[in-house]
Write a protein that binds this DNA or RNA. Structure first.
Lengths: 222, 222
DNA sequence: TTATGAATTATGGATTTCCGTAAAATACTG
DNA sequence: CAGTATTTTACGGAAATCCATAATTCATAA
């Protein structure tokens, strides 16, 4: 089982629950941070002191408050920690249930487990801890397990996302084209934009642009 | 202090934390429900048994799962409980930080306190408990206290919301007009619709319809 | 180089939305 | 009841978006 654990979690309640769970499993050497920045510093310091953590349990979304932060989300924190200490085990612990985001956590940041906060999360957390501590197997909460099977929507690329974001920010198609031209983004003609949009509407089964933005917002893509 | 408390909350972690908090305050007679339906039944039963609850602590959003439910949200639950037992004290306990929704809880459902889940929620919860148990004073977490001062946006009515919802569902303006006509909603001409939309765009400072839907979605209005 | 196919851009017309003005209906007031 | 104000509806042109088709560019291979 794990020897030294760090928790990145802003909500008091979840901190309490995780600590309780760890204690139940006789893991006593743990720390917690309410901000991603703090968590990152602690992890780095632990490496320097030659007493690195062997597990990070991290929330994904952190509330913004008065404090200025460099790392604003759990996704970023996980990414950076994975680079800094490739062998550390990571559990993402979140209410996030959007397939796209969960999938990218496993694929891009190589997390070891995803535990969905909800009606049975503590049990899930215990399972995750037990599985990933003894093997390199992955764990994912059953409610969202389908996220991994889902065939990649590689059809949607960076530019598509950018377009959607501009649209949802109230930019007209013509203006987006202008922006693309000045920032040298490859396809930047009126018809290319229209083709892309119609492809997106097709893909997401949207009736019109309003609908498209509404759908992609709900899916957490933008 | 309160004698008999019921908690409506789906997340295990929050349940744990609330129970802990109540215990700390020497409140031992409490029950909890993970579904609104269950909470409502328990409250009704308690009245029939002549041992009513004197406090409801309720979350606002409940995850949907396999189970069919009649009451799907804390807002509905609170509304119904307030009708059923007008003298019960109610604490809304949620991550919801949209002013509009918080305000309507105080105004429409006459809740006694709003505690925002976050980095200091347990302390807030204790404060809320202490204040509302001894007086008819209201409590609201400081981070969102501004919600109450905010001048009412009475300018936006039911029909506006309906329009926004239809738009975000991909309905064209013309189709919405048709729907309004068949369901006998008062102003249902093309120009009335256009006027309303332009008023809404003005109010929310939206550049166009896409932007408008995006903004109102973010604000939690739709 | 030239042929081929894919990607990008151009064009024009249909549809929808946008916006101002005016007419009509309704409500309110003295 | 007449007169005024407000709301609702009607209309028309401008602008934006939608959509199909055609022309152009570009990369690649024969």
């Amino acid at each position: 089982m794990f020897k030294k654990v760090i928790i990145a979690e802003d909500f008091e309640e979840f901190n309490l629950a995780v600590k309780q769970t760890l204690s139940d499993l006789n893991i006593v050497n743990f720390q917690h941070a309410k901000y991603c920045d703090d968590a990152f510093l602690k992890i780095r310091k632990a490496i320097q002191d030659n007493e690195p953590f062997d597990l990070l349990i991290s929330d994904l979304s952190f509330k913004k408050d008065h404090r200025e932060v460099k790392i604003g989300s759990g996704d970023e924190l996980i990414q950076k920690v994975r680079e800094l200490q490739p062998n550390i085990k990571i559990i993402a612990y979140s209410v996030e249930d959007k397939n796209v985001r969960i999938k990218s956590l496993f694929e891009d940041s190589d997390i070891n487990a995803f535990v969905l906060k909800g009606r049975n999360s503590i049990e899930d957390l215990k399972k995750a801890l037990s599985i990933i501590s003894t093997s390199d197997q992955k764990f994912i909460s059953p409610e969202v397990a389908s996220a991994l099977q889902e065939k990649g929507n590689y059809e949607i690329d960076d530019v598509d996302i950018k377009i959607l974001k501009y649209l949802s920010a109230g930019t007209s198609q013509d203006d987006i084209i202008e922006i693309f031209k000045t920032s040298d983004i490859k396809p930047n003609s009126k018809s290319a934009m229209e083709k892309r949009l119609s492809k997106l509407k097709d893909f997401f089964k949207a009736n019109n642009t309003v609908h498209l933005v509404s759908i992609t917002k709900d899916m957490g893509i933008i």
